[in-house]
Design a protein around this nucleic acid. Sequence first.
DNA 1: ATAAATGTTAAGAA
DNA 2: CTTCTTAACATTTA
Length: 243
Amino acid sequence: MEGPSLVIACEEFKPFVGTKILTAEGNAKLPFKDFKGLKLKGVKSWGKHFILQFDGFHLRIHFLMFGSYRIDKPRENRDPKMYLRFPAGEVYFYSCAIKQSEEKLNEIYDWSIDVMSDQWDPKKALKAIKSKSGKMVCDILMDQTIFSGVGNIIKNEVLYSLKMHPETKISALTLKQQRKLVKETRDYCWQFYEWKKIGKLKKNWKIFRKPHCPEGHGKVTKKPTGQLQRISHYCKKCQPLEK
DNA sequence: ATAAATGTTAAGAA
DNA sequence: CTTCTTAACATTTA
């Protein structure tokens, strides 16, 4: 689950904020008994982290590849990692990683590197990119310390939109291109958010998991790239590798 | 229906 | 000490 989806999750959890937990259980290693009666103070996201705030601690949920949450839906035929019931409804969390922490959010999270945050700082991202000039753009975009919240879908769509080959090194980009990379990433993340909200995200994928190039150049290349070796989807014609 | 994939972390090896 | 490799987790979709 990528950053924009978590912003939507925050919105969906709004009805529970400010109310107390009526029931808490699950197979995660957490002191669920202690959670009953606690008031949910707030919900936040940072990159791919979904954060539930309580007095004195927070729960950090990472959905990874297959995680999900279901609000006011019947329990599925598997054990939830966590189940929370509030006066306004209930939620099941499946196959996610949940960590309890007493650390203060502002001390562990730098909001300015979260692509979805209103504190997002493009200048900081640009500076970070420049300091890694030997790296490939495919790795840079997935770097959670620069573009926190960007995942493989966003990476591929951004690179297609910029007509940029995933294996392009930062050093091969002009300053203008570097700036554009930062801007397009942020812009696409919000576009992703809008499309996902109206259920038209997949419909708007141009290159990710597409068999053919939208420009009619034939087959989309799918290949593990960069240090991370995550699959890149790109068109060799639209996104030539420049050195 | 088999395999790849919206991801990260920990442990062990080099 | 750093960097790399592997495994582990767990589910949907093609």
